[in-house]
Write a protein that binds this DNA or RNA. Structure first.
Length: 590
RNA sequence: GGCCCGGUAGUUCAGUUGGUUAGAACGCCGCCCUGUCACGGCGGAGGUCGUGAGUUCGAGUCUCAUCCGGGUCGCCA
């Protein structure tokens, strides 16, 4: 039977014990016991740090004997006198002091944990996730969760100070099968009907603007039933906001203010504002991505004009068919990238849609070029010059439709930079603006909304709506940090007529509009201030600010790749009774 | 759904061309130790080699299937 803490009251945290305190009462988990025989040291840990407890020949016998039974991860409370250590441990905050224990309570014994609770645990993640409550005892994860809290706190402070009202929107909403898959929730009362968990509070926050709330914020839980990635969890949190009487500039300015404040407050880092901007078209042309990592160069060069009449059919045909030939250069990488390595890059490029990869590898006097035999010397020289490829460099070239060339080079650029280790530390924020409104879907042959159908086209693009869909750009913007999309937002359509027109252009029938968004569309008939907003990924910004590569490291109880949770083993089957009541029969998928 | 990588004591790993009794470090247990702090010393326990089938005289090792985990593509308005 464990002891109780009756009569003891904690007076300070382990990490905060100082010589100024005479007598302290601390509580925590046992990090380590060093039993020297008639001298025992116990490192006691709580969320603030570690403090050393000491027991020696002056310790009362019963207390000493109790200390001899203590094991790792026992939960203790100890009362004693603070004194200076004989030899100081400079590694820890409390390394100069120790507690000479007079009273010890073993509040809870502990089995030996399945892995050691140490900062630099090498234990595989699967096991750590199964025992997440033990993994979370580790200092790095505690620090991450606390930093995430600081970020959330800063967001609330900043937006409250700027006149935003925090409003909760419903978690059980109408399913609108657009974009990502919904998680659906069956209704017992309405047999055969379902709610959906929100993918974002999008529609509700727009309605709040129509309701005249003017400025809204919410730390909103969002759900998407899609496959996971290191930077994608099926449930996640957005710092979700919406503002009235604003245009793009007002929102960017508000968010820049937040970024600046956040980095100063949490990391004491100064972020220069205004943040750099790239249009979507520029970002794609220069970096092959709408979320470029701009911490390093290796920008994409278009060599279509040089090769459009060259002897190499692959290049000439690509240009003739309306595509392009473009390349990137890895400076000084010729030694690091062997032929074999380049073949691997080719394989990677094929895996993501390229038909092949042309290369120039310049180690010795003359460049080794995969398409050299099809080229006149002068053409090759012109290519080298255009790319800026010199001795010691490797150039990778892709020829195809732009829709293939740019993303493939963008992905290669990122992969090579990681492989070569040339990405410097830094916080490269930038805005991507002027996203295309429409996106052509090859499969269905239809034009879809790239962002969402409530996004406002740019004023100067309204004239092409019917004629040149690919030219229509939207008042939509993403905030990108080091190649990660942190935030996405737009100005919304507030004009009823225009919204109807956009729906028609997207091929939605009146019935479909009514069924999916009827209430929202109706709402705009009753007067709507111009408004727009954004959602900032709290998980992602926490991940980056904590210096982690996975959302799992900043999420208390994350899900794994197949969207299950290893600790609780969710999802699970439910009882026949539950299913009967809901009128649901489960059919096993083949 | 596709592709790639991984699964051997509690943990992290090693394990040769298929060959006797599967090793190490840490952790754990016991004994000793008065200044440790990754304490130290001595001793000990601990393994269905993810699971199942197959090839073989013989499988941790080879083959197939399957489960679990990771990465990635598709997907993520």
């Amino acid at each position: 039977m464990a002891e109780t803490m009756q009569g003891l009251k904690r007076t300070c945290y382990c990490g905060e014990v100082t010589l100024e305190q005479n007598e302290v009462v601390v509580g925590g988990f046992v990090q380590r016991v060093r039993d020297k025989g008639s001298l025992i040291f116990i490192d006691l840990r709580d969320k603030t740090g570690i403090v050393q407890l000491v027991f020696d020949e002056n310790t009362e016998k019963s207390v000493f004997e109790k200390a001899e039974t203590v094991r790792s991860e026992y939960v203790l409370m100890a009362k004693g006198e603070v004194r200076a250590r004989e030899s100081v441990n400079a590694e820890i905050k409390t390394g100069g002091v120790e507690i000479m224990v007079k009273e010890l309570r073993i509040l809870s014994k502990a089995q030996t944990p399945p892995f050691e609770i140490v900062s630099d645990s090498k234990t595989n993640e699967e096991l750590r996730l199964k025992y997440r409550y033990l993994d979370l005892r580790r200092e790095p994860l505690q620090r991450n969760l606390i930093m995430r809290h600081e970020i959330a706190k800063c967001a609330r402070e900043y937006f409250y100070e700027n006149g935003f009202t925090e409003i909760e929107t419903p978690m059980m909403i109408k399913s609108t099968p657009e974009g990502a898959r919904d998680y659906i929730v069956p209704s017992r009362i309405h047999n055969g009907k379902f709610y959906a968990l929100p993918q974002s509070p999008q529609i509700y926050k727009q309605l709040l603007m129509i309701a005249g709330m003017d400025r809204y914020i919410q730390l909103a839980r969002c759900f998407r039933d899609e496959d996971l990635r290191a930077d994608r969890q099926p449930e996640f949190t957005q710092i979700d906001l919406e503002m009235s009487f604003v245009d793009v500039e007002d929102i960017l300015e508000m968010l820049e203010g937040f970024v600046k404040r956040l980095y100063k407050q949490v990391l004491n880092v100064d972020i220069a504002t205004p943040l750099p901007r790239l249009t979507y078209a520029e970002a794609m042309n220069r970096y092959g991505s709408d979320k470029p990592d701009t911490r390093f160069g290796m920008e994409i060069t278009d060599i279509s004009d040089i090769v459009k009449n060259c002897g190499f059919g692959v290049f000439a045909d690509a240009v003739a068919n309306g595509g392009s030939v473009r390349g990137i250069v890895a400076k000084g990488a010729a030694a690091a990238l062997s032929r074999k390595e380049i073949d691997k890059q080719t394989e990677f490029a094929r895996g993501i849609g390229a038909k092949g990869l042309a290369y120039i590898r310049w180690v010795d006097d003359a460049p080794n070029c995969s398409f050299g035999k099809f080229m006149a010397e002068s053409e090759l020289e012109a290519i080298l010059k255009a790319l800026g490829c010199e001795k010691g460099d490797v150039a990778l070239i892709v020829a195809d439709k732009n829709k293939v060339v740019l993303p493939v080079l963008g992905a290669l650029r990122l992969k090579l930079a990681k492989q070569l280790g040339i990405i410097p530390e830094g916080w490269n924020f930038l805005w991507i603006t002027e996203f295309p409104f429409f996106e052509y879907d090859e499969e269905s042959g239809e034009w879809l909304a790239m962002h969402h159908p409530f996004t406002m086209p740019m004023d100067e693009c309204l004239e092409y709506l019917e004629t040149d869909k690919e030219k229509v750009r939207a008042k939509a913007y993403d905030l990108v940090l080091n190649g990660v999309e942190l935030s996405s937002g737009s100005i919304r359509i507030t004009d009823y007529e225009l919204q109807q027109r956009m729906f028609e252009l997207l091929g939605l029938t009146k019935e479909e509009i009514d069924a999916k968004f009827g209430f929202l569309v109706d709402a705009y008939k009753y007067g709507a201030p111009p408004h727009g907003g954004a959602g900032i990924g709290l998980d992602r910004i926490s991940m980056l600010m904590c210096g982690c590569d996975s959302l799992r490291d900043v999420t208390a109880f994350p899900k794994v790749q197949n969207a299950s949770e290893l600790m609780s083993e969710a999802p699970s089957v439910v009882s026949e009774e539950q299913l009967d009541e809901l009128g649901i029969a489960v059919v096993k998928k083949e």
